[in-house]
């Protein structure tokens, strides 16, 4: 019965256009409008019900004070002013900024790997297939896996000790900075394959000759890369950046959950985990919603350019 949402629109739409293909112009126009409305309806309902309505309810809750599971009352902007005095909230957004600062790495690393694969080194198809594997593993699974891998006597440190880099074999999840850095690295591990695939898709659209000219000549390889290949890849880079900018904080959530729970102290506390903690563990729904709304604003600001880009991409006519 659920699946019916989409097909519901269909039959009505289906017979509409078939009958009168010969136009009296005006009514056709109106009919096309109604058809359009019918076509966007399922998507609109979905977006409203499962995104916009909850967001609005979140905004309403953020102006309420609720104590435990008792009733709630209007509290004005209390929850918002409280955030500015709460060191945990401030730290969480500071950490979020640090994570966002790693975005260039997210954008460049897959690009470089995609370019390497695109050189058609022996076995390139194999690498292409293998790089995508981490992405297919569920984040929660990744988190549990890396709990073993990053442990003080785990494989990472065993390797470092083995190659004589003993001093680098640290307690990865214990340090103020190394903990957050490790989380980001694990997230990057699990998503870089998607990036590589995306870039390869973009590279496939660039004419072979252009690329070959750029590659063959050993000297000035990087300069050509920068001046010839990257500009042609712009739409792909933009798309991948959109995905990363809007996703990176969300991708970290299950990892925080499985690996650090925001600790040690508040070293890996991010806003989305704080929302969860405040709402579900501290039973402070009003305050939790306020932090959630602040997070929404943060992400929205971050992706405002991406959305603008997406909008123009989707609506611009090809030249």
């Amino acid at each position: 019965m659920t699946i019916s949402t989409a097909p519901v629109a269909e039959p009505a739409a289906a017979d509409a256009p078939t009958a009168p293909a010969r136009p009296p112009r005006r009514p056709a126009h109106a009919r096309e409008w109604w058809l359009g409305a019918a076509l966007v309806l399922p998507a609109l309902v979905l977006a409203l019900l499962f995104k916009v309505v909850p967001l609005v309810r979140g905004v309403i809750t953020s102006f309420e004070s609720s104590s435990g599971f008792g009733g709630s009352e209007f509290a004005g902007a209390d929850n918002y002013t409280r955030m500015f005095d709460d060191p945990m909230v401030l730290t969480s957004f500071r950490n979020a900024l640090l994570v966002v600062a790693t975005l260039p790495v997210w954008i460049v690393v897959p690009l470089v790997l995609a370019l390497l694969i695109h050189q058609r080194a022996p076995g390139w198809k194999f690498f292409r297939a293998v790089y995508f594997v981490p992405y297919t593993i569920a984040p929660i699974v990744v988190g549990i896996m890396f709990r073993q891998i990053l442990s003080p006597d785990g494989p990472v440190n065993a390797l470092l000790r083995g190659v004589g880099l003993e001093p680098l074999a640290i307690e990865w999840l214990n340090g103020r900075n190394s903990a957050l850095f490790s989380l980001v690295a694990v997230a990057l591990w699990s998503f870089f394959g998607l990036g590589v695939m995306t870039y390869l898709a973009g590279l496939a659209t660039i004419p072979e000759e252009t690329l070959e000219a750029a590659y063959l000549d050993g000297a000035g390889f990087f300069r050509r890369l920068w001046s010839v290949v990257v500009p042609m890849l712009r739409p792909t880079v933009a798309y991948w950046s959109v995905l990363c900018a809007s996703g990176v904080l969300i991708w970290l959530f299950p990892l925080i959950y499985a690996l650090t729970q925001g600790g040690p102290g508040d070293a890996t506390m991010l806003p989305e985990y704080l929302v969860f903690l405040t709402t579900f563990q501290f039973l402070d729904r009003g305050y939790g919603s306020a932090i959630g709304i602040a997070l929404f604003v943060f992400v929205a600001l971050l992706s405002i350019f991406s959305v603008r880009h997406m909008f123009t991409e989707g609506t611009r006519k090809p030249r």
Partner: peptide, 21 residues
């Protein structure tokens, strides 16, 4: 625009009201 803007609503930020809905 409305549909692509909803990309910026993280599920964690609205999980509670979403469930209520």
């Amino acid at each position: 625009l409305l549909i692509i803007v909803t990309l910026t609503i993280p599920s964690q930020a609205i999980i509670y009201p979403l469930y209520q809905t």
